Simulated scan of single mutants.
Amino acid sequence: MNLKKMIPLVYGQFLNVIALFFPNLAGNKALNIFAKVRKGKLHSNQLSKLLQEGLGEKIECNGHSIQSYRWKGTGPSVLLLHGWESNSNRWRNLITVLKEKEYDIHAIDAPAHGLSSGEYHFLPNYAAAFHQILKKHEISHLIGHSMGGMACMYEFYHHEHPSVKNIITMGSPCDFSLVVSDFQSILKFNNRVMKALDKVVHLNVGYHINEFSSAQFCEKIPQNGYLFHDEKDLQIPISQSQKLHEYWKTSELITFSGFGHSLHQKEVIKKIVALLDQTKS
């Protein structure tokens, strides 16, 4: 077994031992390991020309300094939300097309991603950050990739945003429990640690792990939803979007094949733009 595969197992055994004597400490340690962002950071001297053009103000939110971007246009406003261990540069292909069509484009780097501050990423903090964009600007469309899509669902469950017409999720999880279960399978920590982790999550977020689900959040969301998912997504199975579609009565499931989890190909972008153009005023 190579070192890269051994390190998570060492963490898992470490948590198992701590949980025998200090379960609360084990829960907090597990959460920190889970939430630690290891990829997706940017430095100001690494920015592409596109990101430099859109570089906007810093938003102060829950102890984080959040980097925002804007490419001004005369058309409807679109807010782009990237996923885990990514940054706003993941939208470069879509931004280029939307700029040509004069959309007013907004994006942010999530906490601990891109040019935003922090080391740890918690979904409610992400939602709190783009909540400020939604309150300041008349956003018409939201597009969230992976965890960015789940953050959309969380935000719209807790706050109404009547200016928003459409929400597009791309390869997004429906159940937080799926993500945490994958985390457990990688580290191979025991259920004593999982119980402690669940307690810490509930204390910090107000939900138990199995309660944190877009299937619940969508009950209060009147907007149209378009759930993009690749049939062979190896990171987040398509069953997650299928489940959300079942519960979200104003949603449409849109599937692709062979594009993987990223969904940044020309065919996907063409479909996104077509949906936005349908409601362009």
Rank of each mutant, 00 (worst) to 15 (best):
K39V: 00
L142A: 05
V179D: 06
T279N: 15
G149Q: 08
L234T: 13
L81C: 10
P162T: 03
S86N: 14
P173E: 03
L244A: 08
G118H: 06
E267C: 04
I238T: 03
I7D: 02
K29S: 11
I95S: 08
L20V: 07
A35H: 07
I209W: 09
L187I: 06
K36L: 14
V201T: 11
A127S: 15
L31F: 10
S88L: 06
I238E: 07
R70Q: 13
H121R: 01
D230K: 04
Q184R: 15
K36N: 12
Y120M: 01
S68C: 08
H106C: 04
G75M: 08
I139G: 02
A107P: 00
N32C: 02
E53Q: 15
W248N: 10
H161I: 00
F122R: 12
S140M: 03
G258K: 05
I33Q: 08
L123W: 01
V164I: 11
S257R: 09
C174F: 02
E160I: 00
Q67K: 13
T74Q: 14
N204I: 03
V268K: 09
Q278Y: 00
W71F: 05
E100W: 01
D109K: 01
E211W: 07
S77K: 14
Q67S: 11
I221R: 15
I236K: 13
H113S: 14
M153E: 09
W84D: 00
E102T: 09
S281C: 03
T74S: 15
D182E: 12
K39N: 10
V268R: 09
R192C: 05
I254C: 13
K165C: 01
H202S: 14
F156N: 04
L25R: 12
E119I: 02
P23Y: 02
P23T: 03
K49L: 12
E211K: 10
S177E: 12
F176N: 08
L80G: 03
L25A: 13
F228D: 06
I186T: 12
A107W: 00
L197Y: 00
F14A: 11
T250R: 14
I105N: 05
Q265V: 03
E102D: 15
V78K: 07
H202Y: 12
Q67T: 04
D109P: 00
K39Q: 10
F212W: 14
Y157F: 12
E53N: 14
N24R: 14
G258N: 07
A128C: 03
S181W: 01
Q13R: 12
L115Y: 05
Y226T: 06
P124K: 06
E60R: 11
H131C: 02
K41H: 07
H245G: 07
V205F: 12
G27H: 01
K249L: 13
E219D: 13
